[in-house]
Design a protein around this nucleic acid. Sequence first.
DNA 1: CAGTATCCTTAGGGATACTG
DNA 2: CAGTATCCCTAAGGATACTG
Lengths: 141, 141
Amino acid sequence: MPESRGNKRTEASIETDPYFFAIRAFCSRWKPFIIQGIRFDGKTRFSTFTKQLPISEKVLAVNLRELEADGIIQRKIFPEIPPRVEYTLTELGLSICPILDALYKWGWHEMKRRGLPIDPLGEMWHGYREREEASMKRPYK
Amino acid sequence: MPESRGNKRTEASIETDPYFFAIRAFCSRWKPFIIQGIRFDGKTRFSTFTKQLPISEKVLAVNLRELEADGIIQRKIFPEIPPRVEYTLTELGLSICPILDALYKWGWHEMKRRGLPIDPLGEMWHGYREREEASMKRPYK
DNA sequence: CAGTATCCTTAGGGATACTG
DNA sequence: CAGTATCCCTAAGGATACTG
């Protein structure tokens, strides 16, 4: 095996670019929803995510580990039986929220302009629709 | 084949959410760089991208088609020999730039804080480093 | 409860050759 | 020049079962 596929020299330029860094850190499929979920409740438990999102336990665990490794969320373990683990946003995690809000706002306005259907629970979370606390507790299931 | 893998009902909620819409529209691996490239020159040609980015022609073409379909860029064909095609940003495309700048800024500060190496050409594009016009013309090759 | 472990599928990306 | 067409590979995501 003489070399891997990609051109390492040029690849490196992309992968040391802040766009790449930021997008990898919090613009994947699930991370905005996970961050939003923590933000909504202040702190969240593992099983709360699996109730709120159509995400598998494996994928959730991977995303939580990455967010923790990137310093965006914090994991606190309470030595109880049954075990309890709480996830909160760090200062860095809080600094992402305005950007996520801007992404949401852009998408919301563009979807409205095109007449596309918009998930109402996300709208409640973001203040684009009046809140119904009951349905917000179990948004996606 | 009774059903596809994913749960359609819950999938739908995610896929009608503005986060998903916005991230799909311009937070993929290449789209921020493509948008930035057009923004830098005002208008750009196909071959200019392939010189500026370590991207294959196929992937570039796919991304350009998607950006055009989403109304983010405009494609103008000049009936010449050899053919000439110019890509420009639409109003919608311009509306994305502040969000991309915020993403870049967040990534830049966080990478600095961690002492990570940052691609200098991106820094020039974004005004985080003094411009050297020569090297900015062929950034990634 | 809060996860691993296993196995599988698919979308995105990439190298290269070719065409109008 | 501005793309297609092919073929290939990997990473991300997902369903399900199991464990401390």
